[in-house]
């Protein structure tokens, strides 16, 4: 474990907590893409299948359980409890345009052609693009609530910090996973446009509004 990865995990945790707080305090899922949350749930389910077979550390197990349960809870809140506030008309990104290419790529490009490894690879590829429905929805509505933009900033930062973690592990632990690194770079790059808006607007106290 290194500081980059620890802070990255804490940013990821903060993002998920921020999202739950936003939903619970505002009693609304307005502006949230249920499709992105379904994709994140799928990322965790396919990545953490080894929850009971692979024991790494208490920290690893606890975080996996929290990520799994919180992502499933978020999907539940969006599609059942606060369904009335879900803005389905703007959450129209076609998930199959992400699921099918990620599944095909995971079958073709992986470290080992075994069910667990292909599912892990699928979860890595899917996580890289899972935010697209949410970013697409914001581009359609033209704005995002401030707390939603904090959520996105924390979520985007987590994988950016993981890139630094991979650099560190490459140089100091001789540990390198090209699939995770390439997907992680793609994932972080997808947030760049949002990072620019967040830093130039939200941090200046303005609401996140996309140029019309």
């Amino acid at each position: 474990m290194n500081a980059f990865r620890l802070v990255g995990d804490l940013c990821h945790l903060a993002a998920i907590v921020l999202l739950l707080l936003k939903i619970w305090k505002s009693r609304s899922v307005a502006g949230l893409s249920g499709k992105s949350q379904i994709l994140f749930g799928l990322v965790f389910v396919t990545r953490y299948l080894d929850l009971v077979t692979n024991f790494v550390s208490p920290y690893n197990t606890i975080m996996k359980v929290f990520f799994l349960s919180s992502s499933i809870a978020t999907v539940y809140l969006i599609y059942t409890k606060f369904k009335a506030t879900y803005d389905g008309n703007h959450d129209t990104f076609r998930m199959e345009f992400l699921l099918i290419p990620c599944a095909l790529l995971a079958i073709v490009v992986n470290h080992e052609f075994s069910p667990m490894e292909i599912l892990w690879t699928f979860s890595i590829y899917l996580e890289a693009v899972a935010i697209l429905p949410q970013l697409f929805m914001i581009s359609k509505t033209g704005e995002a609530e401030t707390i939603t933009s904090h959520y996105l900033f924390a979520l985007g930062s987590y994988r950016g910090l993981y890139i630094m973690n991979w650099l560190y592990r490459y140089y100091y632990e001789n540990n390198f996973d090209v699939i995770a690194v390439v997907a992680g770079i793609v994932q972080t790059v997808l947030y760049c446009d949002f990072f620019y808006l967040y830093i130039t607007k939200v941090l200046q106290g303005k609401k996140l509004q996309l140029p019309a």
Partner: peptide, 10 residues
């Protein structure tokens, strides 16, 4: 700990 795949990241 028991970790055959060597995957130790979240």
């Amino acid at each position: 700990g028991f970790n055959p795949s060597g995957k130790d990241e979240l």
